[in-house]
Simulated scan of single mutants.
Amino acid sequence: MRPLEAALINSWSPVDWADCTVLVAVSGGADSVALLRALVAIRKSGTGRLIVAHIDHNLRDDSADDAHFVQQLADQLQVPAVLGKVEIDLTDEPDGVEAAARAARYDFLQAIAQQQGARYVVTAHTADDQVETLLQRILRGTSVAGLSGIPRAREFAPGISLLRPMLAIRRSEVEAYLAELGQAFRHDATNDQSDFFRNRLRNELLPLLRENYLPQVDQSLLRLAAGAEECRQFVTAQAEQLLDAACEQESASQVTLDARRLAAADPFLATEACILLWRRRGWSRQEMGREKWKALLALVGADSPAPIELPGQIRAEKKGEQLMLTPPS
């Protein structure tokens, strides 16, 4: 067995998904091609299926060639493939285009996963992606949770998990695996350009740091992510306990919390409990920045405060020792 396949088995045992439908996101690049080849090689017999999903963002003249390559690879491996195409607004700034493409990609994957009855959606993020993400977040500013980097797994949709089983595998291992197989892959030339912030990190800043400052910068950032993830898990567990204890009543129209419990808790933990509530309820956190969370906690600790309106038209009102959160009807 080849080293990358063994590493993938260690990360995600084939026994766990033998009877599940797994949707594999394949761009045609080295990482996703290696993921598909390895999954096909290690899968166990069962009732589950592997399905390839590819979306053409139509951002390059040769993007249709990527789709053709992925279809041919899927046919060669006897794996069904679902291909899609989207139009991205190219008038945005480069990083805006990248964000729009990512959003379109995940919307496509979610729709196909639901359509195909997939239990898992797997992507080919590697340890190198983790390093780039961490450095990007550090430079732009992030929380302790952000320092934990790309999560290995998260809920993607009801009953569907998004999984990144190659997150501990380096890109050099991917390239060695494909070379050993003699497997071709597509190269996205836009990754060599420095129009995108992330590309500048990959092509300019990280090589500079490795050569002139800290040769082991990648390992240092990965250790930071591991430590931050341990911290995040602990804080999340504490926040869940606080939220469960503080939640007095919950319905589709309103959530009532014990303001005394929240006010008595450490402000950081109380904020994390509120963030967890927002996540559970599916309320938008896009505009709930630091100042909004501080305003909510100030309301919790105030005497007879006026109600406040939070992003997403969430009305927060304190009555006696109760905090009422009311979403729009």
Rank of each mutant, 00 (worst) to 15 (best):
D107A: 15
Y106E: 01
D129W: 10
D129C: 08
F108L: 01
E98K: 11
L83Q: 13
V82G: 01
R119W: 09
T91C: 01
V82N: 02
Q116R: 13
I88D: 06
L83P: 00
E93Y: 08
D129E: 07
V97A: 00
D107K: 09
D107Y: 06
T123E: 04
A100V: 08
L109V: 03
V131H: 02
A103L: 09
Y106V: 04
A99I: 11
D107E: 14
V97F: 02
T126P: 00
D92W: 14
V97M: 11
V131M: 02
R105E: 10
V131N: 02
G117W: 07
Q114R: 15
T133Y: 00
R102C: 10
P80H: 10
R102E: 07
A100P: 11
V131E: 02
V122H: 03
G96Q: 08
D89V: 09
G84D: 14
I112H: 01
H125W: 04
T126Q: 03
P80T: 11
T123I: 10
E93I: 10
P80M: 10
A127D: 07
D107I: 05
D89M: 09
L109K: 05
Q115V: 04
F108R: 01
E93N: 07
D128Q: 08
V121W: 00
V131W: 02
I112K: 14
L90N: 14
Q116S: 15
V86M: 05
V121I: 04
Y106H: 13
A127M: 07
H125K: 00
G96T: 05
Q115I: 01
A124G: 12
E87R: 14
A124S: 09
L134C: 05
D95H: 05
E93H: 09
A81E: 07
A81V: 15
T126Y: 04
T123C: 13
Y120Q: 02
A118S: 12
D92Q: 15
R119G: 08
V97P: 05
G117M: 03
D92V: 00
A81I: 15
D128L: 09
V86H: 03
E132I: 14
P80V: 11
Q130A: 13
R105V: 06
A100H: 13
V121E: 03
A124M: 05
V82C: 06
D128F: 10
D89Q: 05
Y106M: 07
